[in-house]
Simulated assay, not measured.
Amino acid sequence: MHYEILGRQEADAPTLVLSAGLGGSARFWAPQLPVLTDTYRVVVYDQLGTGRSPAELPEGYSIAHMAAELLALLDHLHIERCHFIGHALGGLVGLELALERPQLLQSQVLINAWSSPNPHSARCFALRKTLLRDSGPQAYVQAQALFLYPADWIASHGEQLAQDEAHALAHFPSQDNLLRRIAALQAFDIEARLGEITTPTLLIANRDDMLVPWQRSQHLADHLVAGQLQLLGYGGHASSVSDVEPFNRVLLNYLASQA
């Protein structure tokens, strides 16, 4: 997998591992990197089968596969302890890591994540699959902003979105890969094992997230041994992009508390 190690380079520097959502690209974290790289060694990566990590994903591909791929990368880099930050699908990877190798994680921050399917998100992902299959990548990419951002932010960031959409189309994954990644997040269900996760965990959620109801993060906070919820009022599903300063402040405060 393509990866980059940014910020501090010392092996004993506090280390952050950032995992993006369905798009899988390290590029997602650009708004956070300026405030993280002075203090931390930051590992970002393109998930397998996305961006700069070309691969043909197999049938039955799962979140457990994604976690195993990341663990192989971290072993290759000799990273034995880290703080993990995951957005949506990336948050599911973090939950899987916390089950499979709890000694790796000093803490985790899970943004608009979930522990089992819910009817609203299932409807949204079914629609996205239909768009991809019946209308193609351009329609899929054009619709993506509607799931990620507040309406007023979309209205005032037309030029940025046009550039982002052009980049997404130029680097669009194979249809089979994307459908298998969506199937993996649709199938994810660890309800029966939530009590096993003892990693200190901050759940960040947004009241105006139209893809994943914020109550899914509240559920995680209520059922994880060391979970706490920070509920934001604005920003949609990707407030790390659409409302950067409040998001970064919450993130930095939590990381400082876990030092």
Rank of each mutant, 00 (worst) to 15 (best):
Q144S: 14
S156G: 10
F172M: 12
I154H: 09
H2G: 12
S107W: 01
H120C: 04
P200A: 13
P14D: 05
D38A: 12
L255H: 15
S217E: 04
Q47L: 04
A98E: 07
I85Q: 12
A30S: 14
F84T: 10
E4P: 03
T50Y: 10
A162Y: 10
G24Q: 10
A259L: 15
A55N: 03
L202P: 02
Q108G: 04
P137F: 00
G24H: 09
F147Y: 12
R128H: 14
A122L: 12
A11P: 09
A26E: 02
L70S: 10
V93P: 04
V43A: 01
G91R: 02
R52Y: 08
A205Y: 02
A88V: 10
G94K: 01
P150I: 08
L110Q: 08
A259E: 15
H120M: 08
N248M: 12
Q258H: 06
G227A: 02
D208R: 00
L127E: 07
L146G: 09
T199L: 06
G86R: 04
F125H: 14
L57P: 08
D75L: 08
R123W: 14
A205M: 03
A113I: 03
G90R: 07
R101Y: 01
M210N: 00
G136L: 03
W214V: 00
E196A: 10
L92T: 09
G195T: 06
L18I: 03
L148F: 13
I79V: 11
A187W: 11
L77K: 14
A221W: 12
L203Y: 04
A64P: 05
A151H: 11
A183V: 05
A155N: 06
H219Y: 10
L148C: 14
E100D: 06
L70K: 13
R207L: 01
G236N: 05
S53T: 04
L220I: 05
L132Q: 14
H87R: 02
W153S: 12
D209F: 02
P150V: 08
P102I: 04
R123I: 13
W214K: 01
E196G: 01
L104K: 12
L18K: 03
R81G: 06
H76S: 12
D189Y: 08
G49F: 01
R123S: 15
L16D: 05
G23A: 13
L105S: 15
E80A: 14
D189S: 07
Y234A: 06
A30C: 06
F28V: 15
S25M: 15
M66W: 01
Q186E: 15
E59A: 13
Y234T: 09
A256Y: 02
D134M: 02
L89S: 05
A72Q: 09
D46L: 08
I85Y: 11
V35L: 08
I190A: 10
